[in-house]
Design a protein around this nucleic acid. Structure first.
Lengths: 205, 205
DNA sequence: GTCTATACTGTGATAGAC
DNA sequence: GTCTATCACAGTATAGAC
């Protein structure tokens, strides 16, 4: 541990370039879909020749891997940021954070596909990137625990319910709210079954 | 209406070849994933040169389109075939047909992705193929109506719940049953909320 | 260390001979 | 209807200029 702190301008610049490439990759994915990502288009947007990308990423899969990790870190950040402004009643907290999650997923369909669907033929996230996913997942788990969802089965049931609303919304009414607007109804059903404090027992018909 | 009935041997042979190609495409998709389908591998399995496929399908997307229609027709057939052996009580019918649907989806992940997730960059099913999806959907709708699910919102909620179980099962526990085994619990929750005849009101904890 | 130039492989697609 | 030849363009890899 001798010498100045590692404050290389070089490595800072290098990291900035990596981020620039990732930002361009997200743009392309937004337009072409996550499977339609091409290094060519990414390079054009960054103002490089396609092979130059290999100075910063080992392969196209390495770019997907970095995007995967970044997506889950962004979700964790969104959850943390949403804590201020969160209601206190368990039932209302449940709905509040569900909306945070659903809106995050619907905001960018290709990001959601990369995070939650195995859609790139040979891509499997690296252990480091998968750890980012686990971190975000544990964050949600902790929130659920506060709310009163403690059994693993109940958590799995909730993730399925939310994932289903997102999947149906994106597949059958993209850009609309046909399933998104069912959130209150879905959570009332869930809260009654699992027993969340502050949930209404009735149902308006 | 003059002449013999249209019993061309030529067109029969032609249709048989198309089916052969589709069967080979399903095999490739099963191995490489639906997005990993290549005309080369399809051609090899059929014993053709890749360009020869264009005598039978206008493009790769046309193959996807035929696969899409076939998949939905197969689902409709599976639902129809399951009618014999179906229980009579609404609550048990609900669970029975849910299992038919979930098992069909889990049976071949790439088929499920083609049917329910927009995963091929520029592919949108043709009106004719989409009609096959609508037919199958209407079949399920009719079954649900018998069971007592009549409101559109209630149907949408159920499709979301089922799609969510499938999505989570495939994404986070492929080949296992971590979410699939939640079917009874999920449907009890749903049946209690929507009011299906013959549903238990309690919950074992 | 970083980018350019170039080339190799594989893929979807088309044209034309048989 | 099938094949051969060929094209355009993707991802990938290496060599070399600066």
């Amino acid at each position: 541990m001798v010498g100045l702190p590692n404050r290389d301008r070089r490595s800072e610049r290098r990291e900035a370039t990596r981020q620039e490439i990732l930002a361009a990759a997200w743009e392309v994915a937004r337009v072409n879909g996550i499977a339609g990502l091409t290094l060519r288009e990414v390079a054009v947007r960054v103002g490089m020749q396609p092979p130059s990308l290999y100075s910063h990423f080992d392969s196209k899969h390495a770019i997907y891997d970095a995007m995967f990790a970044q997506a889950w870190r962004n979700l964790a950040d969104a959850i943390t940021a949403a804590e201020k402004g969160a209601p206190r009643s368990p039932r209302r907290r449940l709905e509040y954070f569900t909306r945070v999650f659903v809106d995050f997923a619907l905001e960018e369909p290709s990001r959601n596909q990369l995070m939650n669907v195995r859609v790139i033929p040979d891509f499997t996230p690296s252990p480091e990137s998968y750890a980012a996913a686990v971190d975000a997942f544990e964050l949600m788990r902790a929130k659920l625990r506060e709310i009163g969802v403690t059994r693993d089965r109940d958590m799995d049931l909730l993730t399925a319910l939310i994932a289903g609303l997102i999947a149906q919304q994106e597949a059958n009414d993209p850009g609309g709210d046909r399933w998104r607007r069912l959130i209150p109804e879905a959570l009332t059903m869930y809260a009654n079954a699992v027993g969340i404090a502050g949930s209404t027992q009735g149902r308006k018909r």
